[in-house]
């Protein structure tokens, strides 16, 4: 049976898995961004998460999930260099604040963290659903997580699936935020890179044991 609580060590393994996934799919993320943005999403995120990896080592073995998330937040904010820096940075920061001092997160705690992260992104970027942004992956993920019951693995899997579906569903949309909003209808048919990187992060979470 899978563990029912996500502790600091799990959080660290998740972030390492995100860094590995971003690194291996960097070109793909940048290609999505080249179509409707400024062709730097993959490189920017990779730079950010590589910097995170460098700092994780310095963290205490007993670091809480909140402490890990906060380290990710401050590192992304100062190293990413594109809109994804402040957006994901704020998400991880709000998530860290929601996690607080807890040693581990149960399903309800996980939903709190995801919700706080999404709310942080919405507050920072002021995007709404259907604006063709990462919010289109985050909000379905939070909704699915909240409805998934009290098994953390089920919550993680529901969030990952909904985020991926949300990312795919950005393809027919016209963008109302970010660089793609300058393109009008030319953005139609392209997946939002931020929604895709959100799906990638939540998929990594679902696969982290």
């Amino acid at each position: 049976m899978a563990e029912q609580h996500l502790d600091g060590a799990w959080t660290r393994r998740w972030i390492e898995a995100v860094a590995a996934a971003v690194s291996s799919r960097k070109a793909e993320l940048t290609a999505l961004d080249r179509a409707i943005g400024d062709a730097d999403h993959g490189e920017n995120l990779d730079r950010g998460f590589q910097a995170v990896l460098g700092k994780l080592d310095a963290l205490d073995d007993g670091a809480t999930p909140g402490a890990v998330l906060k380290l990710v937040a401050t590192t992304l904010i100062s190293t990413v260099g594109g809109a994804a820096g402040p957006l994901y940075g704020t998400a991880f920061l709000k998530g860290a604040m929601a996690a607080g001092e807890r040693d581990a997160l149960d399903a309800a705690g996980l939903v709190e963290v995801l919700t706080a992260a999404r709310d942080g992104i919405v507050a920072r970027g002021k995007a709404e659903l259907q604006d063709k942004t990462m919010v289109d992956a985050w909000t379905p993920a939070v909704d699915a997580a909240a409805a998934a019951g009290d098994d953390v693995r089920a919550v993680l899997e529901a969030a990952a699936e909904a985020a991926q579906a949300g990312a795919v569903a950005t393809e027919p949309l016209v963008a109302h935020k970010g660089r793609a909003s300058y393109l009008g209808e030319r953005a139609i048919g392209h997946r939002d890179p931020g929604a895709e990187s959100t799906a990638l992060m939540l998929r990594a979470a679902a696969e982290t044991r």
């Binding site: 594109g82 820096g85 402040p86 970010g178």
Partner: peptide, 15 residues
Amino acid sequence: DLGSAVLTAETALEL
């Protein structure tokens, strides 16, 4: 200027 300049400035302001 654009997008992330505003977002990063807002983040700096918040912190």
